[in-house]
């Protein structure tokens, strides 16, 4: 088995999930509570990765990261290297690709929290941020857990975007799904089967664990 690729995939999925959580909590809260008229535009953009072929998303990302785009040039002048075919580029692509898998469960969970509880907290002197931490987040734990698990699992399994943006550089951008593809292309079925079985087992365990945990309702944690 290609342990290097497995390690890289796990690391990528972890960083992607953490980035998505940091980005997703405020964005999902905004989507769940805002009454702006153009909110639907943001919702549509967030959901795009669900319907776009990964190659299309990958193509545009590649263009946006390339040396001919202002973003690509700015990145190069800041960090001294280019984004395409690097781990950082892969991380950026994964965050965008898995965005709906984090945002949608979070937004649904936040929207399901009774507005009366939020208002009661405000009237007890708690700010919007503290109300989020003390009431909304604890009551949305199942949605947050779902978002984390889905983002992690989805990143672990991505293929098309990785191929377009990251290429296939061992130790830098070769993820586990690419490794399996390579092994099959090389008619090297035995390691491909082992790696595939590992991915299957891990995915099944993680999802089983998540849904089992979700069944145990009403035992939420508190942030503060």
């Amino acid at each position: 088995m290609d342990w290097q690729a497995i390690r890289l995939s796990l690391w990528l999925a972890t960083l992607t999930t953490v980035s998505l959580l940091v980005l997703g909590l405020p964005l999902a809260y905004w989507l769940a509570t805002s009454r702006r008229r153009w909110k639907f535009l943001v919702e549509a953009v967030v959901a795009m990765p669900l319907v776009l072929p990964p190659t299309v998303l990958g193509f545009y990302l590649l263009m946006a990261m390339g040396p001919r785009s202002p973003f690509g040039r700015a990145w190069e002048s800041l960090f001294g290297r280019t984004l395409p075919f690097s781990f950082e580029g892969l991380l950026l692509a994964s965050v965008l690709y898995s965005l709906p898998f984090m945002i949608q469960p979070l937004a649904a969970a936040f929207a399901a929290v009774d507005r009366g509880l939020v208002e009661a907290s405000w009237c007890l002197g708690e700010s919007r941020l503290r109300t989020f931490l003390r009431v909304i987040a604890p009551l949305s734990w199942a949605g947050i857990l779902t978002g984390v698990v889905l983002s992690f699992a989805h990143t672990l399994g991505e293929f098309g975007v990785v191929l377009m943006v990251g290429g296939n550089l061992p130790g830098r951008t070769r993820t586990v799904s690419i490794a399996i593809y390579d092994q099959v292309q090389a008619m090297d079925y035995a390691p491909a089967a082992r790696t595939a079985a590992l991915l299957l087992g891990v995915s099944f365990l993680v999802l089983t664990f998540t849904y089992a945990l979700r069944r145990r309702q009403r035992k939420p944690w508190t942030l503060i």
Binding site: D114, G116, L117, E119, A120, S121, P138, L139, R218
Partner: peptide, 10 residues
């Protein structure tokens, strides 16, 4: 509030 809105997790 009319529905009391007690925090169910506390």
């Amino acid at each position: 509030p009319q529905a009391y809105s007690l925090f169910p997790h506390l």
